[in-house]
């Protein structure tokens, strides 16, 4: 039996099985990762650029920057 015109069809109940959770992760995670990379690079870029400038002007006194921050800025397409 189908719902008539104007009659709301019932909301289907979603059972969160392991397979569905994995499927949602595959579909959603790539977008989340790319946003996290851009947002993360935004947050740490000032520190990385400051360290790069310091390293080029006074190599001995440059404050160390965590390698993951440098990598994050390097892979971000807008930095």
């Amino acid at each position: 039996m189908t719902a008539g015109p104007g009659t709301p069809s019932p909301t289907p109940v979603v059972r969160l099985s392991g397979g569905l959770v994995a499927f949602i992760a595959v579909m959603v995670l790539p977008a989340v990762v790319s946003l996290a990379v851009v947002g993360g690079a935004w947050a740490v870029s000032d520190e990385v650029y400051a360290a790069e400038r310091a390293a080029s002007t006074a190599p001995g006194n440059a404050a160390p920057v965590a390698p993951w921050k440098t990598t994050l800025v390097a892979v971000c397409p807008i930095h």
């Binding site: 959603v28 995670l29 790539p30 977008a31 990762v33 790319s34 990379v37 892979v75 971000c76 397409p77």
Partner: peptide, 17 residues
């Protein structure tokens, strides 16, 4: 749009590095 665009963006980042 969301999943395919997200995968392309992420893999572009991954490939570039």
């Amino acid at each position: 749009a969301f999943s395919l665009g997200g995968m392309m963006a992420t893999m572009n980042l991954f490939n570039g590095s």
